[in-house]
Design a protein around this nucleic acid. Structure first.
Length: 420
RNA sequence: GUGGGCGUAGUUCAACGGUUAGAGCACUGGACUGUGGCUCCAGUUGUUGGGGGUUCGAGUCCCCUCGCCCACCCCA
C-alpha cells in the first residue's frame, strides 16, 4: 500500500502466523504418511543448471518457453530456479548412482518452486510443493501405491472428498500412432478450432482435447481416445492399475482427455482436483515417467511420482478445518523491580522444561499485564509482587473460569508440568 | 503476454466536484491506586498508492504509472 517501501515481489508471499500453523501441520502429516510408505526425504538445491529443466520438461512447453527464472551466474553459467521438483530429483538420483541401491528407491521433497507467470487465485511465482518419486518399479502396483499414499495424505490432513482422475497417455510405441490419428481427425475440422487450438494442432495436438472453448468441445466429439489406442503392454498396465484402485477403494474416474503439461510422462497420469478452488483447481498431480532417468544418463529405470500444491491444500483446509492457535500455558505478571528479577528466574526454570511461559512488564500495571495475558489467550496467570515474594509463593489465576490459588515458588515448575 | 475489477487510518469500509477526509474494529490510558473478558469515557493513527492534467476548488473527473485481485493462456 505505501509505495515508497519495499514489498515482496509480485506473486511471492510471506507465510506467517496464523497461516504458518496450517502449513506446518500439512508438512507434518506428509512426513508421517510418506514415512509409512517407506519414502525418505531428499533435499536437492533450489537452483540447477538450466539444462536440467529444458531437457526433461520439454523445449516447447510453456514452462520452458516463458516461465523459468533463468540467470547467468558470475561464471557465465546459465542457471535456473527450479520450476518443478521431479527433474532435480532425477538428476540427484543419477548423479549419486542411486540406481545401484536395491529398487524401488522412494523419496519425497518439500519446498519452493518458481515460475514467472501472472499470479491469480491459487497461482504464485514462488509456490510450494510436496512431491514424491518412486524409482525402479515398472509395475502398476507402484502407480497404485502413489495414489493410495496421496489419498491417505489428503484425508489425513482433512480433505477426504477430492476427485481423483486418471488416464494413460501411452508410451513411445503407441503415442505416435495416436497423435497421427488425432491429426487426421482434426484435419478437416481445423477451421472450427479456436486460434490456440490451431496452434496446438501443429505443436501438441493432444492439448486440443482439454480446450475449454465451446467450439473446440463441439469439434472434438467423436475424436479418437488415447485409451482406445494403447499398445498391448500399456493397456494391460492401465487395466491393472484401475483394478487396484478399485480394490483399494479409491474413488476415481478415467478421463481420456486429461493431458499433462510436461513432456516426460509415459503411461499413467493423474490429477486430484477440487471444486472449491477457482480456475486453478488441481491440488495434486503426477504420473509415470519411465524414460527420464535414462535421458539423464542413468540406466533405463521406470519411475512414478506426484506433486502436491501446498497453497492450494492450505487454502482448502482454512475453509474446511478449524485450527486452534497455539497458546501460552502461563503468563507471569510481575510488580516492582524485585519481582521483575525473581520472575525472570522463575520463567527460565519453567521454560527449561519446554513449557511456554510469557513474561509481563514489571513496570506496568497489573491490569495491563492481565489484559495482555488475556489477549495471548494464556491458560494461567501467575502474579509475583512484594507480598508474594515475602511469602515465598505466587498467586495463580485460571483465565477460563477465574479460579484462583497459591503455589510455593519452589513448586511452580511441578505445578505447571502437572497442568500441561 | 492479453482482458476485466479495485487502490482512502494498523484493518474493514464511509465521504452529491465544495469547510479542517470520517466511522466501526484494533491500539494506549482511565473509570477499577494489585486482577483479564463486558460496559462507559478519553486519546493516538492518513503523502486518499505515485506523478501529471482539467477546475475558482479534486479522495471524487481525465491521462500516465505502480501495486493488488480475478480470468484467459498454462499449471501444483
Amino acid at each position: 500500500m505505501s509505495s515508497g517501501r519495499y514489498q515482496a515481489l509480485k506473486g511471492m508471499k510471506d507465510i506467517m502466523p496464523p497461516d504458518i500453523h496450517v502449513w506446518q501441520s500439512v508438512e507434518r502429516k506428509a512426513r508421517e504418511v510418506f514415512s509409512a510408505f517407506g519414502f525418505r526425504e531428499i533435499r536437492p538445491p533450489i537452483v540447477e543448471a538450466t539444462g536440467v529443466f529444458t531437457r526433461s520438461i520439454g523445449e516447447n512447453t510453456d514452462i520452458v518457453e516463458k516461465e523459468m527464472y533463468t540467470f547467468e551466474d558470475k561464471g557465465g553459467r546459465s542457471i535456473t530456479l527450479r520450476p518443478e521438483g521431479t527433474a532435480p530429483v532425477v538428476r540427484c538420483y543419477v548423479e549419486n548412482h542411486l540406481y545401484n541401491m536395491p529398487p524401488p528407491q522412494k523419496f519425497y521433497y518439500a519446498g519452493p518452486m518458481f515460475r514467472y507467470e501472472r499470479p491469480q487465485s491459487g497461482r504464485f511465482r514462488q509456490f510450494y510443493q510436496i512431491g514424491a518419486e518412486c524409482f525402479g518399479s515398472p509395475h502398476p502396483a507402484a502407480d497404485a501405491e502413489m495414489l493410495s499414499m496421496l489419498r491417505h495424505f489428503l484425508s489425513g490432513v482433512g480433505l477426504p472428498n477430492l476427485k481423483f482422475q486418471v488416464n494413460s497417455i501411452g508410451c513411445e510405441n503407441c503415442r505416435p500412432a495416436f497423435k497421427d490419428s488425432l491429426v487426421a481427425f482434426f484435419a478437416e475440422k481445423i477451421d472450427d478450432l479456436c486460434a490456440d487450438c490451431r496452434r496446438r494442432y501443429g505443436q501438441n495436438p493432444l492439448r486440443i482435447l482439454d480446450c475449454k472453448v465451446e467450439g473446440c468441445r463441439e469439434a472434438r466429439k467423436g475424436a479418437p481416445r488415447v485409451t482406445d489406442h494403447l499398445c498391448e503392454d500399456c493397456r494391460v498396465h492401465f487395466e491393472h492399475l484401475l483394478l487396484l484402485l478399485e480394490k483399494l477403494g479409491i474413488p476415481h474416474s478415467v478421463n481420456p482427455e486429461m493431458v499433462r503439461g510436461l513432456d516426460y510422462y509415459t503411461r499413467t497420469t493423474f490429477e486430484v482436483t477440487s471444486e472449491n478452488l477457482g480456475a486453478q483447481n488441481a491440488v495434486a498431480a503426477g504420473g509415470r515417467y519411465d524414460r527420464l532417468v535414462k535421458e539423464f544418463g542413468g540406466p533405463e529405470t521406470p519411475a512414478v511420482g506426484f506433486a502436491i500444491g501446498m497453497e492450494r491444500v492450505v487454502e482448502l483446509l482454512k475453509a474446511a478445518v478449524q485450527y486452534d492457535l497455539p497458546r501460552p500455558l502461563a503468563f507471569l505478571a510481575m510488580l516492582g523491580k524485585q519481582a521483575g528479577i525473581e520472575g525472570v528466574l522463575i520463567a527460565d526454570r519453567v521454560r527449561e522444561k519446554g513449557l511456554w511461559v510469557e513474561l509481563g512488564d514489571a513496570g506496568s500495571s497489573l491490569k495491563s499485564q492481565m489484559r495482555r495475558a488475556d489477549r495471548l489467550n494464556a491458560q494461567y496467570v501467575f502474579i509475583a509482587g512484594d507480598d508474594e515474594l515475602r511469602a515465598g509463593s505466587l498467586k495463580w489465576k485460571r483465565l477460563s473460569d477465574s479460579a484462583e490459588g497459591e503455589v510455593a515458588i519452589q513448586g511452580v515448575v511441578d505445578f505447571l508440568q502437572s497442568l500441561s
